[in-house]
Design a protein around this nucleic acid. Structure first.
Lengths: 135, 135
DNA sequence: TAAATTTGTAACATATTTTATTACAGTATG
DNA sequence: CATACTGTAATAAAATATGTTACAAATTTA
């Protein structure tokens, strides 16, 4: 199972970009994603921690973009919502007495690290504005 | 949570490549991965369905490679164990009355499809033999 | 200043996926 | 014919992701 964090976050940011002058409520955003507002607020908390959005508490409060959408890349959003991309590891520690078991994870890490560089390069070329303007 | 299928499968194949003349038992392979033998057999069933390995039942049975390791690419292994790479989707159907909700998944699919092409290209350049010879 | 609305967050519940275990029929070997 | 495997089903346990409820704190506006 892969978490929907990236998808949810980019959905939130696209909405914020569409209404640059408004503070959107978690309730409103949740209505577009069809998600519980608490989960929206959790992703917003993450975005706030990275200074991508700012929010205002209280009546008529909500959240708005705090950065230039042309300068925020999908790579940054990726890094805020995923540790890294990859094809996974076996859950248990492999047998250290087996030459393959002993080194497999290290080799997988190298492979996945190359995948990340690859994907990062792609995502670096797309801004939130680019993404949002498709709609 | 990301499944360990790819990692387990490549571990199995690396072991088989190291012992090209032997039928390795699921018990033995499981000992290297530190995994339940039944799960090893399930991945082997998948490999068999793709004609990558062959196995022999009964005493002294087991599994061995059925293809040339120089010609089996990590891309093929990836495709046998993952549908596709990507950064996920929100679980629920987004609001079709919202212009963003209506189209977000379609745009994400395009993005992920590009990621797949990108990663596939990378994995296509690495054979099982290449991978295994690192050990 | 009181009512209304919203964020922030904790605590807990449910759902889904992944991994593990048990069991046993069937098959080949020696 | 005993042994040691595969193949597979059924079930359980663990891990992760999502959902819900609740409420304090903040801010607006009447």
């Amino acid at each position: 199972m892969i978490s929907g964090k990236f998808a949810i976050t980019i959905h939130i940011l696209t909405l914020l970009h569409k209404f640059p002058n408004d503070y959107l409520s978690s309730e409103y955003i949740a209505g577009s994603i069809n998600l519980n507002p608490v989960l929206v607020r959790k992703e917003i908390a993450n975005l706030k921690a990275h200074h991508i959005v700012e929010s205002k508490e209280g009546k008529n409060g909500g959240t708005k973009l705090a950065v230039n959408a042309a300068e925020l890349t999908l790579k940054q959003i990726f890094e805020m919502t995923f540790e890294t991309i990859g094809l996974g590891f076996a859950k248990n520690q492999p047998n250290p007495d087996c030459p393959v078991g002993k080194n497999i994870n290290q080799h997988l890490e190298v492979l996945y690290s190359e995948m990340n560089q690859n994907v990062s390069k792609q995502l670096e070329g797309i801004s939130l504005e680019d993404f949002s303007n498709q709609f």
